[in-house]
Design a binder for these strands. Structure first.
Lengths: 331, 331
DNA sequence: GTGAAAGCGCTAACAC
DNA sequence: GTGTTAGCGCTTTCAC
């Protein structure tokens, strides 16, 4: 039993097996080595020493890391974990791994993380980045994809969902039910998706001569619970929430107030998270293909990684899922 | 403007700045370099070439990666994203990053991932690993922490939650309300936490002379929705679900069947996910300090990384949160 | 204080 | 077919 206190290297294995390091490397990587005796000795030595190749050294030699950096505004937000899931599946299929960091909704943190991750990864995926556009431009030289965020005319790839069309569709749905005054529980002020939704809401409602009241909420159920009363006070007959979580919070408050949904007030959300269909009443919501956004982001990044620099843009359609939380407006 | 087609290295910067690579390195790392002219030239050259140091080369030189590998059975499961969140916060505070991989509930995939990640990381966190104990033992040599999983008497660190006590508490709560027949919507068969809960259920119910019916469900709301009828048919007056998601699915089915909760049937879950309090009725559930488990896992790992090999075990207490979904059994 | 050179652990030319 | 050796890009002694 040889004595090695530090982590064993390929040199140690070569010495113990009485072969060259090249042979060790070849055996371990399944390259052409014919002598079965050598193979045996190498495997034995490697096992005996508990040898594990250094991924870092391999990466340095290979010139790539097969690592993709992902920056998320909030790891705990279920819609980001869904995106992360799609991204992980897609990258794993091509033998790449995810280096994940949580920016905690801070643009400064985001910038710091991007700069650090960029050193260790082959490419970056920025999820709904809160960063200013010109900051983004500086990082655009490396392979980079943004999700759910406009990138202006920057040469940056971007994958996202057509929030504008989605919101337009809910508004028309509600208008069709006779609602003349819609309240919106807005998302985080830094969210580009929220801005898109507000724009669509304004445009569509104006065209339909529908009144709109916007109340700042946020992205959690607590936010929805807290913000609802303002909309009720404003006299809306239907509420659209930035996402399903916010909708759930506001729904709880509606019940507390004794409102019948949708008899007294209608409610719709965004995302179609798994529990949406199990609520009472089941929630009408704009389904976003979030997981697919993750997969598409990888496609885009992969293109940049291989076809050297080809950027692209993907905008995925939404789908209005009408359930029981929206109904005809009171006469 | 110098012509470099490949990614610029420190040598390129040194050449352009007409200094040694050592000086470049020192300037960029804020080491002692006095001549302001040199500093200026280095910074200028670096900026001009858009130079970015190679993290891989640095890691190789440093002998560490500051990367922690995390293997999760299912990235989309909200309770894992919460754990991941806690882990990310804790590691980030000590300048480490997370390399995340989704094993998709497969023990084989898990093994493969562990072996691969181990090559690139300083340590590993295995979340609720489905792997057999002896497989685990083989990986135990490297710094390793398991969450929510017994590790027998293996020299492996482990952080988790006291599922046994949590289940015992719900059962006593239900018994106190007069329930004599409890149904359990079981989790994934490979889940160690589920096994613990079943054991606690059996033990506690036996002590209280309460009847128990266990029905295999899973970990999603769909599973809960699907599995509920069997329990109803068995005549239980209270249902405990493996987690809140499963509880939500079964709750939807109870409503569909016209049951009043908790008038006709009581329901309790595990986790206390954020939406639990917003359901109708608000869900009684065993709150698990999942995020804290993530933080503790890092503490444990950090100990191994620094104090070379000190393993440890942390078992966190649960808390029964009684809301409106549990009530007195029908007389 | 700055430069030359060794070396981190590995793979892949290139010799033999 | 196997061994020798030159790097991959960086940091850090060690001389000067």
């Amino acid at each position: 039993m040889p004595e090695v206190t530090r982590r064993p290297t390929i040199v140690d294995v070569a010495r113990v097996a009485r072969v060259s390091t090249a042979t060790v490397s070849r055996v371990l990587n399944g390259r052409r080595v014919t002598d079965p005796e050598l193979i045996r000795r190498v495997r034995l030595a490697a096992a005996e020493l508990h040898y594990r190749p250094s991924g870092t050294a391999r990466n340095l030699q290979a010139g790539v890391t097969r690592l993709i950096g992902v920056v998320v505004p909030d790891l705990r937000n279920p819609s980001f974990s869904e995106l992360l899931g799609g991204l992980a599946d897609a990258t794993a299929a091509q033998d790449h791994r995810l280096l994940v960091a949580d920016a905690k909704e801070s643009p400064d943190e985001e910038r710091t993380l991007i700069q650090e991750l960029a050193l260790h990864c082959d490419g970056l995926v920025l999820c709904s980045p809160r960063l200013a556009l010109d900051d983004l431009a500086r990082f655009g030289r490396g392979p980079l994809v943004c999700t759910n965020r406009s990138v202006g005319d920057l040469p940056i790839s971007s994958a996202g969902v057509d929030s504008y069309a989605g919101m337009a569709e809910v508004v028309r749905h509600l208008a069709g039910l006779g609602h003349r005054h819609i309240g919106y529980l807005a998302g985080p002020p830094t969210s580009w998706s929220d801005a898109e939704r507000q724009r669509a809401l304004g445009d569509t409602a104006a065209g339909l001569r529908i009144r709109v009241t916007v109340e700042p909420a946020g992205s959690t159920s607590d936010d929805g619970y807290r913000a609802l009363p303002a909309l009720v006070a404003a006299g809306v007959s239907a509420v659209v929430a930035f996402n399903d979580l916010v909708a759930i919070g506001s729904l709880a408050r509606m019940r507390e107030r004794g409102f019948d949904v949708p008899g007294d007030i209608s409610l719709a959300g965004f995302d179609d998270i798994p529990v949406a269909q199990f609520l009472a009443p089941p929630l009408t919501t704009v389904r976003l293909p979030t997981e697919e956004v993750g997969r598409r982001a990888w496609d885009l990044l992969w293109n940049q990684l291989t076809k050297a620099g080809r950027t692209g843009t993907v905008r995925l359609p939404t789908e209005l899922v009408v359930r029981a939380s929206t109904g005809a407006a009171r006469a």
